[in-house]
């Protein structure tokens, strides 16, 4: 299980290849890459702020909970901080499991919790100025659905 905050651009392909390499008991790896959107020109850059030390620890807690719930063999979360241009990856998540369902659900679960429960603050810069972005009602609903729904274990 690995959690990393990085200021430089990330290469999701290289992260995925390294995550997959050398596994003999893993049947499924699911990865997700979140990109910064231009929003039709409204966003020229995103600025991500973290609380170094605390943010990694909270993400590790979220990842450990997902690993336990879905029976993951391994997980990787790489999150950018600082200034991010449209088209650049903000977040990369990978989940490894013996079977695909656990890997799909764990990656989905990890992202839902990262969106609204990981300690990041996101500012949008654009032609109209700058504004902090709060999680949407949908983001909170996405995280809440895991409180109701029980997953099927293989």
């Amino acid at each position: 299980m690995r959690v990393e905050l990085v200021e430089a651009a990330v290469d999701p392909g290289a992260l995925l290849s390294a995550f997959i390499a050398g596994r003999r008991e893993t049947g499924a790896v699911v990865s997700f890459t979140g990109l910064a959107r231009a929003d039709g020109g409204e966003t020229t850059a995103l600025e991500l702020e973290a609380y170094p030390g605390f943010t990694e620890a909270e993400i590790a807690r979220i990842a450990a909970a997902a690993a336990e719930r879905f029976g993951l063999q391994d997980a990787l979360v790489v999150h950018r901080t600082g200034r991010i241009a449209p088209g650049e990856p903000i977040v990369f998540v990978a989940a490894a499991a013996a079977h695909r369902r656990a890997a799909f659900e764990a990656a989905d679960h990890l992202m839902d919790f990262l969106k609204s429960r990981a300690p990041f603050w996101k500012k949008r810069h654009g032609p109209g100025g700058e504004a902090w972005i709060e999680p949407s009602a949908g983001d909170y609903r996405d995280a809440q659905r895991w409180e109701r729904q029980e997953t099927r274990r293989p």
Binding site: G34, Y51, M111, L114, K115, S116, K122, I133, P135
Partner: peptide
């Protein structure tokens, strides 16, 4: 002491 407004990652 840190004050943490609503969090928004990803």
């Amino acid at each position: 002491v840190a004050f943490l407004p609503p969090m928004s990652g990803g």
